[in-house]
Design a protein around this nucleic acid. Structure first.
Lengths: 230, 230
DNA sequence: AAGTGGTCTAGACCACATA
DNA sequence: ATGTGGTCTAGACCACTTC
């Protein structure tokens, strides 16, 4: 364990235990240098880490203070479906249902970035049974070579993940009732509750892909954990 | 903009643009010191930040490499319901439905930490109409004073948030069909799809609270964003 | 005006993974 | 055995904010 980690964990523990209450002022850095017998850079690193984790707030000239607790965000595991299925110990599969040229507005009306898209729809399979369905638009200009890709064999998500350098994403998570068509594809009752995940991905300012995935509510849960960072 | 930020952003931009492809080896730190004309600590800080963001991977003796893109996690906004309602421009309210002594297993069977609990159930209101229902267990030993709290006036979530020093949390997000009772409380049809959020909160090793919140699927979506850090 | 955190330098030692 | 990243020191200057 590094010195910076030890300092951070010690203070974090005193905050979590309630010994240091919200609003409490922590010693200034030079006092902590004396108390811990290390350099100021090390103290500073520990304090910066606490601030990044939201445990403390730091203000110049004023000092460092224990923050009010807040639970406003958590790290969400975003489904890489092939991996999820593999971790369940089932065999992953993909079945292409449709592939055609499309426009940006075919999946949603609010896409401000026009341009040619490829529409791909299909079903993710776990142990041969439907696990999730997916409808996806891929921007042709952002993804060279996509028109030659073989989406009969490989799901477009993993194909893209291996080729697009980096991305920014926005997710929207909903509960919806399965439409007739979706229920058929998933082998569930029409109207059954489903978890719907919609994801927009960009590369810089240009959209790369926009996907809607629908999971039967009884077959998949998202799990997120939030705790002391590191 | 600091030197470390400038170095980080420059490399991040080259990775996102595709100029630096996954697997590409970046210069070693002492070369970057020469290239940027700064100290090694500054280069190291920039590279550590890139590694924390998942853009690069660093291995001792081997060097630093552009990482394969991955979108496995995102920062999830966890509902602080009063705030959500306020941001929608509606008036928040809370209606207590039930309050009684309970056991840890009353909400789920798998709580390994026995002990006395307080059970609280009620409805969150937006503009007077039901917005979400909540069922909650609160551990008496972890939350002194909870037996005297007035949950007629204040929702237990915000009451707890203002008093519990810090917490670790686990979330589970599901799509479920509204039960008869939940549908009545929410003013929706029985069986309608709902987003169900379950959260366990700890303080150190001891559980603090365990809550199930149910939102009508058409009234609330979770939104997550994932992008370049900072 | 003074004190605080934010950042940087130049140098050092070490653990570790690879060659 | 060697080179890499990981961490730390001691000191410095600066920007900002409150006093």
């Amino acid at each position: 364990m590094t010195i910076a980690q030890a300092i951070r964990d010690g203070i974090a523990a005193r905050i979590r235990s309630g010994e240091l209450k919200p609003g409490h002022r922590l010693p200034v850095e030079h006092e902590m240098v004396a108390a811990y017998g290390c350099s100021r850079a090390t103290v500073s690193k520990a304090m910066a880490s606490l601030a990044a984790a939201g445990l403390i707030e730091r203000r110049r000239k004023a000092g460092s203070f224990v923050a009010r607790p807040h639970l406003e965000q958590a790290v969400l595991a975003v489904p890489d479906i092939a991996r999820i299925v593999g971790e369940r110990g089932e065999v992953y599969g993909w079945r292409l249902a449709e592939r055609r040229a499309a426009k940006a507005t075919d999946l949603a009306d609010d896409d401000p970035h026009p341009g040619a898209r490829l529409f791909v729809a299909g079903t993710h399979l776990a142990g041969g049974a439907p696990f999730a369905i997916e409808r996806r638009l891929i921007a042709l200009d952002a993804v060279p070579g996509v028109e030659e890709a073989d989406f009969e064999r490989e799901a477009p998500g993993s194909w893209l993940l291996a080729r697009i350098p980096w991305s920014e994403a926005r997710h929207r998570i909903d509960a919806v009732a399965a439409s007739r068509a979706d229920a058929m594809a998933l082998g569930i009752a029409s109207g059954a509750p489903c978890l719907r995940i919609e994801r927009w991905t960009w590369r810089g300012a240009s959209p790369v892909t926009h996907v809607v995935q629908v999971f039967p509510g009884d077959r998949y849960s998202l799990v997120a954990r939030f705790g002391p960072s590191d």
